[in-house]
Structures are given as structure tokens and as C-alpha cells.
């Protein structure tokens, strides 16, 4: 199974990915970007929009 993973050392917590997520499965707190894998549809929009390549598709 695939899922979108956050590279925590790179992520700048800017929220650009959250703004394009079509299923609102991302949550950005002060310190963390979380993705709800249950809701995520693996559309890759977040990976594609990220300004700094801080998101990636991972096989579990």
C-alpha cells in the first residue's frame, strides 16, 4: 500500500499543500503537518505543489 509521507527535516510548514488537497485530509499545526492516510486518495497534488520537495510517495 502507498501513502504520502512528510520529510520532516525539509517541511517548512507553509500549508501550500493543504490549500490544494481535494479531500481536506491534511492538518497543519504549529509544529507538524499530518496526513490522514484513511482519507487520502493519493492524487499527488500535495507532492506536486510542494515548493521544496518535502513530500513523497512511499510504499508500505
Amino acid at each position: 500500500m502507498s501513502l504520502v509521507a512528510v520529510k520532516r527535516d525539509l517541511c517548512d510548514l507553509c500549508g501550500t499543500c493543504v490549500g490544494v488537497c481535494p479531500v481536506d485530509c491534511m492538518e497543519l499545526t504549529e509544529t507538524e503537518l499530518r496526513i490522514d492516510a484513511e482519507t487520502c486518495i493519493l492524487c499527488r497534488f500535495c507532492i506536486d505543489i510542494c515548493p521544496i520537495e518535502a513530500l513523497e510517495m512511499k510504499d508500505e
Partner: peptide
């Protein structure tokens, strides 16, 4: 801000199309 989740929770269409999102550094 850009996340605009408050509006979405209320049913407003605040999702930004990929084309219209300027991704910046």
C-alpha cells in the same frame, strides 16, 4: 491563510486549483 480549512468546514469552496496556486520560495 492559504490552507483555508475554516471555510471548507463550513461548506465554502476554498480549495485552490493547482493552476491557480502560485508555489513560492
Amino acid at each position: 491563510g492559504v490552507e483555508s480549512r475554516v471555510g471548507r468546514w463550513a461548506g465554502l469552496k476554498t480549495l485552490t486549483k493547482m493552476h491557480d496556486m502560485e508555489t513560492c520560495v
